[in-house]
Amino acid sequence: MLRYLALKVGRALFVVWAAFTLTFVLLFVLPANPVDLLFDPAELNTVTSEVREQAAESYGFNKPVLLQYLGRLGHALTGDFGNSVQSGRSVTATILDVLPSTFVLASGALLLALLIAFAIALIATSTRRAWVRNLVEALPSGAVSVPVFLSGILMLQVFSFQLGWFPAFGDRGAKSLVLPVITLAIPVSGPIAQLLVRSFATEFRSGYVTTSWAKGATRGVIVVRDVFRNASLPALTIAGITFGNLIAGSVITETVFARQGIGRMTQAAINTLDVPLVQGVVVLAAASFAVINLIVDLIYPLLDPRLRATLTVGSPRAA
């Protein structure tokens, strides 16, 4: 078990390092010079070369790329990601400032998305009416087929501007969370629901269910007891994947609802080639991703007796 744990943690660390490195490479592949982006574009041709050099020097952009990389990596190991090129503020402070707001939004949306997904999957699996099942099974694809910004804007038109139930922008307590959470949850619920519907159905057909069926269990009991537990495994996998969707979705949700947050900040940082800030965010994202997966990996064997069996034998298959 200890070896299993060490393996997982080492893997998580690798992911974080690789993400850091890959981002650095990607940003340097870009056909743009971060120094250019510090000036008003209309004035760009007027900026003298001395001014450019001075700007490049104060951010260390004139050093050899490898040195820049090593320097940043060294500092990053101590938790120091430098200062944002755009605002001059320390990256850590900048991120910590906006993190809670995104965290609340994302976890609310994830929770709601899981509720929706499980509801859809349960109804689709347990109903006996074909048309209900067809309708419910169409929901996930319906959910992902409307652009997030459009559903957000339309919801605002109705619930904020016409009915006045919720504030339209900013972050003013629980009430201003309702619309953004729904907006973000809808597209996120789609893939999860789809996967659940599929695996619930698969589980329903598999041998042990048939056995329970033969033993005289009712449909509802079967769904809850057997199918639910076994089909949750891939759902956990996709929850990890969903993490990325949440970040991408939060960029748009935070923009539409004018909220402070990691998503919007990341977009601005990428746009302005704010290398230190982008790296801070990527490391954060990679680390959170690694931790979520670590947890999933640790829960996996507990949920699935088959994997638990292989684990005790010591097979690396579950890695």
Partner: peptide, 18 residues
């Protein structure tokens, strides 16, 4: 000074008195 990136949200917020 509130930053509202979306045009329709700025317009709607003005209309609703926010």
């Amino acid at each position: 000074f509130s930053t509202i990136p979306e045009a329709s949200v700025r317009t709607g917020s003005l209309g609703s008195g926010a």
